[in-house]
Structure formats: C-alpha cells, structure tokens
C-alpha cells in the first residue's frame, strides 16, 4: 500500500494549480481531502506524475457563500464544515442530510465537496444531491472558467466531463423546492451505498406537488434522475396509487450494476420499495404553509 513516486507540488493559487495541471499534460492529479485519492495511490490504481496539493487554497476555495437566491460552496469545503453550516442547513437541507451518510467522522473531517464531485463515484452522495438539485459545477482551466450543469457532468463510473487540465473550484445551487428527503442503504453503516435516493418537491395548498425531482445513486454507472417517476408525480396529488406507480416507474431510468456490494436484481428489488416509503414519508409530513 505504498504509492509509486510522484512530484508533490503545492501551488499558491488556483491559477498556479491550473498552470501546473496544464504543464503535466493530464498526468497530474489534484489532492484535496485525499480520502479517495490517497488509497487509490496506495493501491497503485493511479500513478500520477504529480500530485497537486490544493489544501493551502482555502482563501479561494474554502467558502460557503449565500448570495441572493444562490448558494455557492467552494471546492475545498470539507464535509464536516458543510454538516454544521447554518447556511447549508437553511438553504440546502437535502445536502446537509446526505452528507451525514458519507464515510465516517474522520473521512468527513478531511473529505471535500469538490473532491466528491471530481471523484464521480456512482454511489456518491454529493454527486447525487448536485444532480437532484440541478446544481452547477464551477470549473477553471487554462482557457478560463466554465460552468457545467451537474445534469450531464457525470458520464460514467468515476468519469465526468472535466478536462485533464481543469479543476473544480466550487458548486453552485439555485433555489430548491421546499421539501426534501434522503435515503441510503449500504451493506454496513456508512459504507458505499447499494442504493441512495434523493427527492425534492414543493407542495401547494390545493394538495398537489410541483418541481418534483428524484435522484438515484447506485442504480446506474452514474447518479441518475428518475424522470418517468418524477413526471408521474409532477402536478399530482400524492395519493397511495400515484406513489406506488411512481415507485415502479423509477425502474425505467435505472440500469443497476452488478458488483461486490449487490446484484443488479437485488438493487432493482430495493428501488421501488424504498422510493415508495421515502415518498410516502414526505407526503405525510405536516404542511405548514
């Protein structure tokens, strides 16, 4: 479990980090929290020419900013900080809840939100929340800054549309629906998820629900939206029949993988059961206003 040799570099700005990425022509990796990268180095699943440690860039990358209707979280914000942030609790409660399912205390003390998005684990909680809430990934490269919709950013297992000489600087969220719920099932406590689910929606006073979005983790090569299920529930009253139909429709957007944690069949078995329960729980919550 010892990494192969690499250059260790500590840039003093995002600009310098990006210039270094460019210099190494795609063979360098960014080290943020290191909770995925360091084990991958140790197992020699990766042998980068250089490791670019951005932990000194807290000024540029370590902030949680609420501006108007938007909330921007710097790439270097650690899970533990997000977990206790009043801004996130108030504006992005789904994210606050999901983060508690990540790793364990030690991992959450080091791991970063930007790192989670860059890692693009198909069971990753931050990726799932970013997709479900329609977030924007903020990226800087040698050509300048880019903004990429989370919907479309994740293109495969541990794969995304980030260029090899680009780095993530943050993630931005807009206004989110008023209600949210999160569920995760793993083989053991806070292990990688076998199935994770995120639901957001806004109930109206006439009993119908709007802005419905349902995200699924562990059910495909990437986190995916359960579009058919969300369409069934959009503008509808969430009675028992509607919820049962939606829970089954979610399977249309799922193509569950087979791996050491669960069979595809088991994942497909879990999905409608747990989505049905999650939606029913959300529908039952008291509607104050």
């Amino acid at each position: 479990m010892k990494p192969a040799s690499f250059e260790y570099l500590r840039p003093e700005s995002v600009a310098e980090a990006v210039a270094t990425l460019d210099l190494y022509g795609g063979t360098a990796r960014i080290l943020a929290g290191g909770q995925s990268l360091v084990p991958m180095l140790g197992m020699r699943l990766m042998r980068p020419g250089a490791v670019i440690d951005i932990n000194g860039l807290g000024e540029e990358l370590g902030r949680i900013e609420a501006r108007g209707s938007e909330t921007t979280i710097g790439a270097l914000v650690r899970y533990s900080e997000a977990e206790t942030s009043p801004v996130i609790a108030e504006r992005l409660p789904l994210l606050g809840t999901a983060i508690r399912h990540i790793g364990d205390r030690q991992v959450r003390n080091r791991g970063t939100l930007g790192g989670a998005i860059a890692q693009s684990d198909p069971t990753g909680e931050v990726a799932l929340v970013a997709l479900t809430l329609g977030a924007t990934v903020l990226v800087t490269g040698p050509g300048g800054e880019r903004e990429l919709a989370a919907d479309g950013f994740f293109v495969g297992s541990y794969a995304n549309t980030l260029g090899p000489e680009e780095m993530i600087t943050g993630v931005r969220f807009g206004v989110v629906p008023s209600r949210s719920a999160f569920f995760e099932r793993g083989r053991k406590h806070n292990d990688f998820a076998v199935l994770s689910l995120a639901v957001v929606a806004t109930p109206e006073s006439d009993g119908t629900w709007h802005d419905v979005r349902i995200g699924m983790g562990g059910m495909n090569d990437t986190p995916v939206l359960a579009r058919a299920a969300a369409e069934r529930l959009e503008g509808a009253r969430w009675d028992e029949a509607a919820l049962a139909e939606a829970a089954t429709l979610a399977l249309r957007d799922a193509d569950p993988p087979e791996d050491v944690r669960a069979s595809a069949e088991y994942r497909a078995h879990l999905l409608p059961i747990h989505l049905g329960r999650l939606l029913a729980g959300l529908a039952k919550e008291p509607r104050h206003g």
Partner: peptide
C-alpha cells in the same frame, strides 16, 4: 488497512480526528 477503512491510525490534526494513512507526510 492502510486504505482508510479500519481507523486504527486515527490521530488529531489541529484538533480534528483524521486517518493518518490517508494523508501524505508533506501535508
């Protein structure tokens, strides 16, 4: 385990519990 799973190597870094096998010495 040297891969961040077992937690034996937990230390305090500036007061926070972290797994010391998941950090590089220069950090």
């Amino acid at each position: 385990c040297e891969q961040g799973v077992c937690g034996m190597c937990t230390i305090l870094l500036d007061g926070d519990a972290v797994k010391s096998c998941l950090m590089l010495a220069p950090q």
